[in-house]
Design a protein around this nucleic acid. Sequence first.
DNA 1: TTTAGCACTCAACGCCCCCGAGTGCTAATT
DNA 2: AATTAGCACTCGGGGGCGTTGAGTGCTAAA
Lengths: 350, 350
Amino acid sequence: MSLSDRKRRILKAIVDEYIENAEPVGSKIIAARSRLDVSPATIRNEMSELEELGYLEQPHISAGRIPSTAGYRLYVNELMQNYALSVSEAEAINMALRTQMLELEKMLREFGSLVSRLTNYTTYTLMPGGSSESVKKFDVFLADSQTAIAVIVTSSGLLKNKRIKLCSPADDSEISAVANLLNTYFTNRTLDDISLSLIKRASFEAGHLAPLVTEIASFAGEVLDSTREGDVYLDGISSILRHPEYRDPEKAQELLTYLTDKKGILRHTHEHFSQDSSPGGIRFSIGTENSDEPLRDAGIVYGTYDLGKNLQGVIGIVGPRRMDYAKVAANLNYFITGFNKLLKDSFFNE
Amino acid sequence: MSLSDRKRRILKAIVDEYIENAEPVGSKIIAARSRLDVSPATIRNEMSELEELGYLEQPHISAGRIPSTAGYRLYVNELMQNYALSVSEAEAINMALRTQMLELEKMLREFGSLVSRLTNYTTYTLMPGGSSESVKKFDVFLADSQTAIAVIVTSSGLLKNKRIKLCSPADDSEISAVANLLNTYFTNRTLDDISLSLIKRASFEAGHLAPLVTEIASFAGEVLDSTREGDVYLDGISSILRHPEYRDPEKAQELLTYLTDKKGILRHTHEHFSQDSSPGGIRFSIGTENSDEPLRDAGIVYGTYDLGKNLQGVIGIVGPRRMDYAKVAANLNYFITGFNKLLKDSFFNE
DNA sequence: TTTAGCACTCAACGCCCCCGAGTGCTAATT
DNA sequence: AATTAGCACTCGGGGGCGTTGAGTGCTAAA
């Protein structure tokens, strides 16, 4: 059975009110604010039913009510109205998109800090992960007679480099031979395809530069391995302390530690996306829906960006459970849409 | 006039005690703990004189005393005894050093997180800055027919790369010609030496790949520009909330915002090093000695690492004013010493 | 010069009480 | 049957108040 229209309007009003003021909301306020023209008593009856249905909870008997996780869930799924981006918000995002930096990392950072400022929540960005990643191209050259630089371009467009000290001196032609060798042996192979015996064979061909080949090959392995789970950037950390629900330093520290640790949020995000496989768009993960303890009073809004070839990155915005889902979703959605278009145009022209 | 030996011992005892317990210390405790064999009354007299001299302050009349900034200063300069690293501390640092990562950035991050864990304070690392930086070597190669990758090695050993989309297709030989061109025109030049007319001349020679040359040249400019002030990494942010002086969320947020903003801490560090030009080693900057408001209740312990050619990086450890200077200094010093040795061996073999 | 003794100060704590917002229930009204 | 006015009840929060105890400064004796 679905809720009566009036119950829905009341619930929405309560969530809106609570999101704004962070204080349990009572029947009187709802009666006054919502254009329902009924008395507080009626609202009270409805509220008590909404509580029975699990959408509201009471912090203590003589206080107003606050939305439960289920209440927020209904709110984000059906009740909340589209937040209209202000001109300045849209403009800021457009600006960030226009800057057209071709480095994925930098763009993500830039956007993270932008959204944190716009919304007052903490942002994290996940680089895409997946085991289908492979090396697209190797390059090796000399920085000086004793130092080689190896550069790796992965299939998803990631760039990584490493400085390697040579045991025995080499000249340019030797080094470019090594680069060729690497390109023939190791390109277009996923991590699982790079076996020890392959490395052995390749380095055998390299003569006195065998150690260099081995080292670069294992560097490639590292890079591919690290892309498996992706990397995390955080921004707007100090926003956490702005919200009254994190007034308690213990609570704040718990969340902060969890977020800066990166492992937890990484696992959690993967988990969320593996079970909620609804198509693109904005998703939410609210309060007790989160299995990780530090997030059980928090809310997360997710968006995904697409790098082709099944590679997906995630942007997440973390706040208290009582966060302004509508506003955050609108901002994130606006950015993600533009970002995905940009990515399609500039990264993958195949 | 310098302080009597007894006053110094009392002051030291007070600082030690306060560092450990974060509570104003009274005469009784000092009489009991310090091996001075005098009565609390005597201590009281001494304390009241120490207060008059500006080394102690009283939070309120009926409480014990806490060290003032001047008190801490005297403590770190003359009183504190060497903290002996525990075996596990030394071992952890050795381990980090042995990992021998040749990427400066990664090493710094690794150490930052290590020290944060060891000491429970927040760590930041500054990449070296200076306007004497130049490009040591360019490399350009094709990732695919429409995308070029440019790699820059700077004189201090920094590695940066960028993906560049081509307007017109090019083949390998054309690209390596571009690389040669860049190397002849732009290597060993500081930012100030790279003029617009130089860029114009170089790109003129590049024919239809002129846009590529211009873009890489300006990328080089960006890189050199960014090395001017260096980059900041933070670690152990959540430690801030562990200390009772930051129980107040407002205070914590102030410091957190200041630190994550990076501009402030960067400027502050430069400022500190420009006026305190004592030779290497560990330095301190305590409480009100800091001109920036958010740091006036904080303490910082600095160490510098050396990249040759007047390039210096800084590692800073931030905590409450009542931080364990001895312990932090010992850890930092141990690391810095080893790190500098390592840097000398592996980065600069000229 | 040191110290015992003592009066004094004041933050912190616990206690109590009151206030008021908000509830649930009941009975009257529509 | 739904709504609402009225009312008793609950309970967290805040203010006032006295107590406690750690710590001080001063004085006078050792």
